[in-house]
Nucleic acid binder design. Sequence first.
DNA 1: GTGAAAGCGCTAACAA
DNA 2: TTGTTAGCGCTTTCAC
Lengths: 385, 385
Amino acid sequence: MVTMKDIAAKACVSISTVSLVINHRDKGRVKPDIAATIWKVAEELGYHPNAMARSLRSGRTHTIAFISDQVATTPYAGEIIHGAEDAARQLGYMMFIIDADDERDISGDIDRMLSWGVDGYIYAKFANRYISVPPTLDDMQVVVVNAEERTVIHPRIEPDEFSIGYDATTRLIHAGCRRIAYIGCDEPAIAQVGRFKGYRQALKDAGIPFDKRLTSRVSHGRPALEAVCKLLDDTHPDGVFAFNDARAVYVYDYAFQHGLTIGEDLSVIGVDNHEVICDTTVPALTSVELPHYEMGFWGACKIISMIEGTDPIEQERVTPSYNAASMPPLDTDGPARIHCAIVEKESIVGGPRTHDDSEPAQTAGSDANPSSSASADGSRRPQRR
Amino acid sequence: MVTMKDIAAKACVSISTVSLVINHRDKGRVKPDIAATIWKVAEELGYHPNAMARSLRSGRTHTIAFISDQVATTPYAGEIIHGAEDAARQLGYMMFIIDADDERDISGDIDRMLSWGVDGYIYAKFANRYISVPPTLDDMQVVVVNAEERTVIHPRIEPDEFSIGYDATTRLIHAGCRRIAYIGCDEPAIAQVGRFKGYRQALKDAGIPFDKRLTSRVSHGRPALEAVCKLLDDTHPDGVFAFNDARAVYVYDYAFQHGLTIGEDLSVIGVDNHEVICDTTVPALTSVELPHYEMGFWGACKIISMIEGTDPIEQERVTPSYNAASMPPLDTDGPARIHCAIVEKESIVGGPRTHDDSEPAQTAGSDANPSSSASADGSRRPQRR
DNA sequence: GTGAAAGCGCTAACAA
DNA sequence: TTGTTAGCGCTTTCAC
């Protein structure tokens, strides 16, 4: 390992001089030609400053820990991690990853983090859920992403579930739908409650009466398919808002079986903009995209702002890879809620709306910031394969 | 921050004594009651050893870096990360995560890793692809996961693509299929080549002539659906082996349109055991599962074995969360290839095979280790929601 | 402008 | 059985 000592020896100066130069503190203190020599020697020797030694002195490690359950099991995990890593990297931080399976005791991992002197923690879930942050972290800097604490302690960000339901339903109404079904999730999730409220509010605002028979809560597999078919057979809706894309698929199955064409005879909108489903549905499913990348990005910016006491977004020290507009400010009172854009495909009658004629619904009772719509031609995500 | 100094002061001993005790090197060197006092004081004060200081001395950080493209964009990312994290954690290592977007220059990140003195590197892709490890890492410890280098330098693990094709096709043959279609991928990927070879070999071994008209290479969306429908219309196969689950979906669409029932009139098998597709297909799609978790796990074990010069698996210092049987040994000559199990669902005529009557095909020309089949009732993955 | 020296928290060789 | 001491690589104060 090359050290400052080696450089000092080769450049015939003292270690402190090397330190000054390497840390760019040599302005008017070290002769420029000496500084140049030092840089040259450092380069030649392939010098890399020893982060460990540095941290030992400074007490700051420039690392954060990303703790999450279900790193493994959800397809969206990567986007949150990616967003957080992206922001962390741009701000000079490295990110540890810790899988916190619900069943597993993570106190050992937390001890290890404490040993490392990690500067801050991101605690994330991959579905908007209730969690409790381990009390060991009580006097650490913690940000909660895509989840809610029963007793709120830490700053957090979550999707604006209400406006997902509101916007999706409104989109169908604008396409001319009047009998709009809701295919829900059979579990009482935060997401379910919010989206359903948004659905009802949108109907109300449009003067369309709510009809319970148009709603159903399903899980997966054959029972779900049968429930959806029954709903469609019984009530013949002209639009369907599905809790998520997976549940929207059953509407496609029904349509294939009955010779209907989605996007012509029947409009459908889902949630998740799930890559594989959007890839494989014909016509492609229009869907509301949950901004996982953005939530991760926000989380990392937030935790780093707490560590450093400055706002990296305001200071423009950091740029998200996409969709910067939808990033809520870091210093919101209460939870940050992030707006979710509709990704237009082909499953709604009348075809994709262009950006121009869409005015995202202003969500009553929601503190969403001004929304940004994704482009009409689909996801803003990088394409796979 | 609580230090050994603090403990020493409170326990009225010297720092070295504390060090000896904390590091369990006090056997017959420190009086047991003194040791006990030290532990008590450490506990009271909430002492955590300072990993930084430790590493500074030892030159070892007990950290590894997981470098990968597409952390973001694939649903399987999480499983590889999860597997690697699982092994690393059990072996006392922490894992940094680095997103290496293809376009992005990661030399800065690597510099940071070098500064950190990360002990080893896992270089992973999420589809079995060709890669080149940055030359900066040439004299570091590196393991390649789910990818292949053009000029092989580092140990690596990848799925046994040949036997995926062979096993899937053989499974259909055992179910009585004789006209087996192959719906391939339109790109020349490593996976594509191997799976197709396996398909042909299985046909050959069963004495079934290869018929080019039964094969098609498709991408996604409407053109793919149309190509698949044409293939099925023209050739009326009794079984379909699809390159992946996403491509198998088009067969379902065709079946719905034509009043056919998958698993009765037509058998289908995919690859990926993609959660959302397996959740939503009716009847559920039988699929070959790529052991992402296991590859990540193997990768971490391998890199740590290289760092430490011992084999943690042989020493039983580590236990995978599932499917331990399929883990190849760490010290294979050449690349480790990992066998992929069929996850039985309902899309093959005759219903799921039980474990008993399935003898996984011994793959000619492949050095796969003895395979382990997943249980007949589906994935071994933890369930989402 | 430059260098000597102390010290971050810990380990390990050596002394007592 | 316990304590003293040097030093890991770096930063920072202070003297020259």
